[in-house]
Amino acid sequence: MVGDLLRRQLGYRGLIITDSLWMAPARAAGTSAEVAMRALRAGDDAAALLTKAAQQA
């Protein structure tokens, strides 16, 4: 989905990284591992699992 839209339709050739999957909506969608796997299957290259402390830095 993400890979198809950005790469094929828009011609994007860079790295695709999620926003923090530690945010409440992402955490409500499943465990960190489940949400990260969904993002990777959708075409993201990397999943950001930043803790609250890392986000404040």
Rank of each mutant, 00 (worst) to 15 (best):
L6I: 05
L6Y: 13
L6K: 09
R7P: 07
R7Q: 06
R7Y: 07
R8N: 12
R8T: 11
R8A: 06
Q9A: 08
Q9E: 13
Q9I: 06
L10I: 02
G11C: 02
G11K: 01
G11H: 03
Y12Q: 04
R13I: 07
R13T: 11
I16V: 13
I16R: 05
I17P: 09
I17N: 10
T18Q: 01
D19H: 06
D19L: 00
S20Y: 04
S20V: 08
S20K: 12
L21S: 01
L21M: 14
W22R: 15
W22D: 15
W22N: 15
M23G: 06
M23T: 04
A24Y: 01
P25E: 03
P25T: 01
A26G: 03
A26R: 00
A26M: 15
R27T: 04
R27W: 02
A28Y: 02
A29M: 14
G30M: 00
G30A: 01
G30F: 00
T31C: 11
T31S: 15
S32Q: 15
A33I: 11
E34A: 14
E34H: 12
V35E: 10
A36H: 13
M37F: 09
M37S: 14
M37H: 14
A39V: 01
A39G: 08
A39K: 08
A39H: 07
L40Q: 10
L40V: 08
L40P: 02
R41Y: 04
A42Q: 10
A42F: 04
G43M: 03
G43W: 02
G43A: 04
D44C: 08
D44K: 11
D45H: 12
D45I: 00
A46S: 11
A46P: 07
A47R: 07
A48D: 11
L49W: 12
L50C: 07
L50N: 10
T51S: 11
T51M: 03
K52L: 04
